[in-house]
Design a binder for these strands. Structure first.
Lengths: 218, 218
DNA sequence: GTCTATAATCTGATAGAC
DNA sequence: GTCTATCAGATTATAGAC
């Protein structure tokens, strides 16, 4: 219902102390929402608990977010902004050879997902009942995924199907790890092997020199 | 902890008409639960709706299942029994060459999952709030997964890590398909490519027919 | 075996006082 | 901006009549 003109990842700077305080509270609420959701599951978030967690009545939360879905939406957006930051943080691997860089990226992606399974579910699965991201937040998601595609391009992989395949492989490993062995590393140990396997298929030119093809090293 | 001797998939036969009718009603309730869950999501199941769907009051459902979790548990078990039947139905591919059989199996697995996304979530993801399968149902799941491992063994793949990797790849493709492109085939089209890729890694001997095998024989 | 009645609790959300 | 009060409903589950 509200005007959804907000351009992705471009929050207007607060205009005064009032607005600054308000933004701070919004951030605090969002942060509390993440804590609750990690403890009770994505669908288990309730406005009551959320209010209590920030020292308010549930009703007061509505002064900051107009609905529960708006909170999910803000979490979705924030999650993708974190994913964006994650991508940017990988820039320091630009010096690595493409194959090594790909391997590095794979491990980092796996870590990004498994360190916060709930965030992973919110961003990459459709597990939440009636929630659909707003156009604005979805636009952020698409932008970030485009940047991920750029990362693939940087190591010479531009075929969209190849990128889909690679992402599917890593999300598959991730979700198996989260669902079936959350405390250990049964699938994490397969990341290297998956990388080698993928390289053969989608970037064989990267292997034409000295082919290390290490398997199973952690 | 409990005696896990209970042999999966061996319900005692009903002892009389009374019990037969009761079992029929239980089946009817379960079937209605699947319908509801497909429409409203796994977590959206309510006893009210379920009762209404079978022409009862919600309270009467408790005469057949002692709790909502018991219904989830029965669905979990039934899902794995269907998966078991799915495996058995693949026996007619025994005549195929191993690589072709593997390919066939991959496509069938993808179909099994995508034709009922909710079942897929219940069986292979941990998306449901507070539900844990009972020891009995979990034993069924383990048995069926063992049979799946036997299928891999039949085409010469016995390394547990290799099986984990293959399953992760196919569940990854599946869940991407379900979450991001439910009406079309963006990831389904990648199944063949994934199969080829996997074969190179985990069963190269199946591809060595035309080249001098210098890797050593079995 | 199904019902009515109801407990006990949770939910998201709104109105309006201060 | 936070509160009280409250709506209007949902939920699972139990007790006991018939």
């Amino acid at each position: 219902m509200a005007t959804v003109h907000a351009i992705p990842a471009a929050p207007a700077p607060p205009r005064g102390r009032r607005e600054a305080q308000r933004d701070r509270t919004r951030v605090e609420i969002l942060s509390a929402a993440w804590v609750l959701v990690r403890a009770q599951g994505l669908a288990g978030l309730s406005m009551r608990d959320l209010g209590e967690a920030v020292g308010m009545r549930a009703q007061s939360v509505y002064s900051y977010y107009p609905s529960k879905d708006a909170i999910y939406d803000a979490m979705f957006r924030q999650g993708y902004e974190e994913f964006d930051a994650w991508i940017a943080a990988g820039a320091d691997t630009a010096a690595l050879a493409p194959a090594a860089r790909f391997r590095h990226m794979a491990h980092r992606f796996f870590d990004f997902c498994t360190t916060d399974p709930v965030r992973y579910m919110l961003l990459f699965q459709r597990t939440i009942p009636g929630f659909e991201p707003s156009p604005g937040s979805y636009a952020v998601a698409l932008t970030v995924l485009d940047e991920l595609a750029d990362e693939f391009a940087a190591i010479g992989v531009t075929d969209p199907a190849a990128i889909d395949l690679a992402i599917a492989v890593f999300t598959g490993l991730t979700s198996q790890q989260i669902a079936n062995d959350p405390e250990r590393d049964r699938w994490e140990r397969l990341v290297d092997r998956a990388v080698s396997m993928l390289l053969v298929d989608l970037a064989p030119h990267l292997l034409d020199r000295t082919t290390p093809a290490t398997r199973g090293t952690t």
